[in-house]
Structure formats: structure tokens, C-alpha cells
């Protein structure tokens, strides 16, 4: 550092010269239009490149904000799609427009997620103070993510679809044929799962969409769960199995939406078995 200062001091005449010469050049360029146009022509590609870099950097730093905006927009559009879906399927007969969409979508952000456990869990940054409760569905940009199991005032945690055993049993259906089945994860891969309980006559093609069946109070019908990955063997047909790839990319999840079914409590109490 000391040497650097010594070098700079030694070259002080050069700095004075460069400064005065630079000021003179600025005067020259400001005085003559020809010089201005030459300078503009020479430096415009550099200036353009420079501003492109600046813009790219700005975009990078404002990605979080943009993501928030996109998520809000996604929430709005999903709500719109759902409204149209419900209206087209005449699921809602109420003339009260405030009740025409029995679902609400609340944006949230994933703050923790496990991928290599037998029961994989997630945690989101919204809790009971924001109106979240257990048994609410969670979806990501691709499709279904999981279900909330516990809530605290500020956070919520739940099970993802990557769940071995009876932790989360999701009823699904094939979009092409409307046949129902249950989603089962065998714990082998974070991308794939199996559908069980398909009838033997059901034809399944690779690429077929598997979606929520709507037979529970957690998810409405038609939310993507996954896509069939391979043709069924005779053994699979016999067992009623089909193999799918999850619609959600769990390893890249960030923003999610929590689904709030307005009539969930009503439906649950109605479906509760009564004592004979």
C-alpha cells in the first residue's frame, strides 16, 4: 500500500496532465457538434453494451420483487380459471356472487423442504395469523405440492406428495378417461410416483395428465398432479398400476399457493360418521 502511494506520488505530474487534458477535451467535445457526433457514433455500441449490463444487473437484483408480482398475478389467474371451471361445471348454484368461488388462494413462500426422507415435509412462511389451518392444500407453479398438517401463528408445515405409507393419500384421476386411482410414492425417486387402483380395462398412454379427482375437501378437481411416464406392462395392468412423473418440480420450489376451501368445515362435519 505504501509503495502504491509512492508510485502515485511519483506520477503526480502525469495525473495533473491527464486531468487538465481531460478537461480540455471535454470543452472541445462540448463546443463542436461534429466532435459530439463522432464521439456518439464511436461510443454508442459501448454505451449500449454498458446499459444492457446495467439493466441485466437491475433485473437480477429485482427478481425477488418480480417473483412476488408474478405470484400475485398467478394467484389472480388461478382464481379466475377456477371460477370459470366451477361455473362451466355448474358446481355452484348460488346466486350470491360472493360465494360463487368456494376457494381462495393465498400466496406463500417455501422456507424449508426435505427431499430425501421417507416422509418429506415442507414449511411455508404463512401461519394461523394469515388464516391458515391444517388440511389445506398447497400447490406450486407445476401442480399439487402437498397438504398442511400443522400451523403456528406465523408458519405452517405439511406433507408433500413424496410420502411413503399412509401419511397423505391423494385421490387422483386420469384426465383422458376420468378413471380414479390413488397416488402412492414408493420412496425411490423425488420425481416419480405410482397410481394404484386403476381398473384393468383403463387405457393409459405415456404423457396422459393425472389430476386431482376433487373427491376430497382439500383440492378441487382438475389440478395437475403428474404425467404418465411409460406404457403399462401386463403386470401393471393386472395390478392396476400406472407410473407418473410429478407435475411439481420439488427441488426448484419457491413460491406456492395455499388453497382455502370455504366449505371445508361444513363438508367435513357433514361427512363425519354419525353414531347409529
Amino acid at each position: 500500500m505504501k509503495n502504491l502511494f509512492l508510485i502515485l506520488r511519483k506520477l503526480r505530474l502525469l495525473w495533473v496532465f491527464l486531468l487538465l487534458h481531460g478537461i480540455s477535451l471535454v470543452f472541445v467535445v462540448r463546443h463542436f457538434r461534429y466532435h459530439q457526433s463522432v464521439l456518439f457514433e464511436t461510443t454508442s455500441p459501448l454505451t449500449k453494451q454498458w446499459w444492457t449490463w446495467i439493466k441485466e444487473m437491475e433485473h437480477f437484483f429485482f427478481l425477488t420483487e418480480e417473483n412476488e408480482l408474478l405470484n400475485r398475478e398467478l394467484t389472480r389467474l388461478r382464481r379466475q380459471v377456477l371460477q370459470q371451471q366451477i361455473q362451466s361445471e355448474s358446481l355452484c348454484w348460488s346466486s350470491d356472487t360472493s360465494l360463487s368461488v368456494p376457494y381462495k388462494w393465498l400466496p406463500a413462500r417455501l422456507i424449508h423442504l426435505t427431499l430425501n426422507q421417507s416422509q418429506n415435509r415442507f414449511t411455508i412462511d404463512r401461519g394461523s395469523l394469515q388464516g391458515l389451518r391444517a388440511d389445506m392444500g398447497v400447490i406450486g407453479p407445476g401442480g399439487v405440492v402437498g397438504v398442511i398438517t400443522q400451523v403456528s401463528p406465523h408458519l405452517s408445515t405439511g406433507l408433500t406428495l413424496m410420502n411413503e405409507g399412509q401419511g397423505l393419500l391423494l385421490s387422483v384421476r386420469l384426465k383422458s378417461s376420468g378413471e380414479f386411482g390413488n397416488l402412492v410414492w414408493d420412496g425411490k425417486s423425488s420425481c416419480c410416483a405410482r397410481i394404484e387402483g386403476l381398473a384393468t380395462h383403463v387405457k393409459v398412454q405415456p404423457g396422459d395428465t393425472v389430476e386431482t379427482s376433487g373427491l376430497s375437501s382439500i383440492f378441487p378437481r382438475g389440478l395437475p398432479v403428474g404425467y404418465v411416464t411409460k406404457k403399462r406392462t401386463d403386470q401393471d395392468v393386472e395390478a392396476g398400476h400406472a407410473y407418473i412423473r410429478f407435475a411439481s418440480r420439488f427441488s426448484a420450489l419457491d413460491h406456492v399457493l395455499v388453497l382455502d376451501y370455504t366449505y371445508q368445515a361444513e363438508q367435513d362435519s357433514l361427512e363425519k360418521p354419525t353414531a347409529p
Binding site: I23, V29, H35
Partner: peptide, 9 residues
């Protein structure tokens, strides 16, 4: 402009 200033400097 500053032609003489630059050259004289």
C-alpha cells in the same frame, strides 16, 4: 472549444 488548452497543456 478547448483545442489550444489541450495542446498547450
Amino acid at each position: 472549444g478547448g483545442l489550444h488548452a489541450a495542446a498547450t497543456t
